[in-house]
Nucleic acid binder design. Structure first.
Lengths: 226, 226
DNA sequence: ATATGTGAACCATTTCACAGCA
DNA sequence: TGCTGTGAAATGGTTCACATAT
């Protein structure tokens, strides 16, 4: 479950990458507050998790700290930015401009990671040609042409489940190498394409089950939650 | 990372619960297609994953199959429904009726799991008193009263990060036992409350990183993706 | 003295291999 | 025989403990 990123010499667990991105985002806030040097212990209080985990996670990307001292915030940010490739701006497209797609087109948080939504796609005449949150919606049939021009790297799929597989194939043939799929179906994609699933029903359903079960018998293992 | 569900005698990994919910949802479709009995091998072709994993996942909840035969679809559905507690309808609230919150209020997929959004909450006068997707929006200050009446079990938080911690506390004091948090901050909650985070930036950022890295050097482990 | 970086130990989950039933 | 159910082995990630550097 979950792929692993093996570049150069080290294999980075996918969850470590998620945590590192979060560290990067949250450490930028510390910089804005004027903090200059911080230890993994103090970081753990702010970021959550254990100092050891933070050190291990950071060490997947390089040696950014000074022994006996801690981490210099400014250089930590630069290093994370470079190693996580967040210094290079990325474009993303949203395919399926329903309520969820529109919300994602207007989602402000992506810009913290230097990602912008560069276009939306739909087949609905009511939406094609219009703009939402300043982002133009094109007809799905012109996806290749538009992608050639705007050069997005990843796609967000928020179409109905029934058409998601077909849409993913069109997206891939337009050159997209990563798909974030919100449709409630498992997409099968060629192995060179990365895919992540965000299945809202399952997230809510799993949460509900967990809260129901642990409400009855108070007996579960505690740790940092996902 | 990730809690574990320990009820009765068995401990079920949280990811197994997610998969089981997905199985339930997808197996209902098989029933509609008229299939009556199916083997774990055939199931794996449809649901993804290995037959062994499906058998193991199902066995966390009970013994639903017949050796030498396979699983009776109808009884499998009933058993999953009961064990996953999806036979009892659940109410959920959405706190923060921005674009994302509205999209979640109108999300059709929850009903497959017998979950309905019973109310929205916001502090914006423009939204309070109105209805979206047939669901009424109340002022956050009346959350206790409204929750007492509608008795929701879980909450979806889709407010700005700056107020998410405070909002989570109000939600918990209204009796909510599970929170699905879309705000890009880690919430700290009492141990009896379940919390899951859906951090859209991090999902998209991790996907982008993975697709960028594996695009350069083709070297990663393949398996069923998350 | 203090805090990092990391191999080794540990632990959870997935996979395997086969015992147990129809 | 065929397919499920499940202990046991393997895998992979997190935690620990200490060597290392300032």
């Amino acid at each position: 479950m979950g792929r692993k990123i093996c570049s150069e010499k080290t294999c980075i667990p996918i969850d470590a990458i998620r945590r590192l991105i979060r560290y990067y985002r949250d450490i930028k806030v510390l910089h804005d507050k004027g903090i200059e040097v911080i230890s993994s212990f103090d970081l753990s209080e702010i970021l959550g998790g254990s100092p050891e985990q933070i050190r291990k996670d950071l060490s997947y990307l390089g040696e950014f700290g000074k022994r006996g001292v801690g981490y210099n915030i400014k250089s930590l940010i630069t290093n994370l930015e470079n190693r996580l490739r967040l210094n290079v701006p990325a474009g993303a497209i949203v395919v399926g401009v329903g309520r969820l797609g529109m919300a994602l087109m207007g989602y402000a948080g992506f810009k913290n990671l230097n990602i912008s939504i560069v276009a939306g796609f739909d087949v609905d005449k009511e939406k094609v040609g219009k703009s939402f949150s300043g982002i133009r919606v094109y007809h799905l049939r012109s996806i290749k042409k538009v992608c050639k021009r705007l050069d997005p790297e990843v796609a967000i799929i928020s179409v109905p489940g029934e058409v998601a597989q077909e849409v993913s194939e069109r997206v891939i043939s337009a050159g997209i190498k990563g798909i974030l799929n919100f449709a409630p179906v498992r997409l099968s994609v060629p192995s060179e394409v990365w895919i992540s699933h965000v299945d809202l029903s399952i997230e809510l359903g799993a949460l509900l089950f967990c809260s129901r079960v642990s409400g009855v018998d108070e007996d579960r293992k505690s740790s940092t939650s996902s």
